[in-house]
Amino acid sequence: MIHNAISHCCLAGKVSEPQWNQILEELEKCESNHLMILFRDAGCQFRALYKYHPNTEESQKLTGTGPKSISKSMIDKLYKYSSNWKQFTVLPAKNVSMSVIALTIHNHLWQVKRSV
């Protein structure tokens, strides 16, 4: 499912091929049963790929741009992927389940902290 979501929706097309190849390498190495995509916002722009640990309810980054880990309190929205429609839809839940394939984090977590 994650493979289809990324290749058909998130990183479709020739221009995204280098990033897609990097993700394929990470997918081959990863032994996790639950992977999730991090989007920048509701526009479903791919930012990173994470492996989810249900026992700690935390996600660890495999590749991409985003925090090293994502905890439950950081999650803004959860998404599922429809392989028939090749699109993501928001889930009305706040808890990660096996149907969750993507997420967004709260906007303030994207802000760059600048030193003065």
Rank of each mutant, 00 (worst) to 15 (best):
S97T: 15
S83L: 08
K68Q: 03
E25D: 14
E25P: 01
N84P: 01
M74H: 06
L78A: 06
G64A: 04
N107M: 01
P67A: 03
I70A: 02
Q19H: 08
Q22A: 13
V15C: 06
R40M: 01
Y52L: 04
A42F: 01
L109F: 07
I6E: 03
E17M: 14
K86W: 01
G13A: 04
S71V: 11
L38K: 01
A5R: 06
K113A: 06
I75A: 01
T63R: 11
N107F: 01
H34L: 09
L24A: 11
G43D: 11
E26D: 09
V96G: 07
V90K: 13
I2A: 00
A102H: 09
S99F: 01
I2P: 00
I37E: 02
A48C: 11
N33W: 05
I70Q: 04
C30A: 13
I70D: 02
K86P: 00
E28D: 12
E58W: 05
A48Y: 09
W20E: 11
V116R: 08
N95R: 15
N107L: 01
C10M: 10
A93H: 10
S59L: 15
W110C: 02
M98Q: 13
S82D: 14
E25Y: 08
Y79C: 06
L78C: 07
Y50V: 08
M1K: 14
S99W: 01
S97M: 05
Q19N: 08
T89N: 13
S82M: 10
N33D: 14
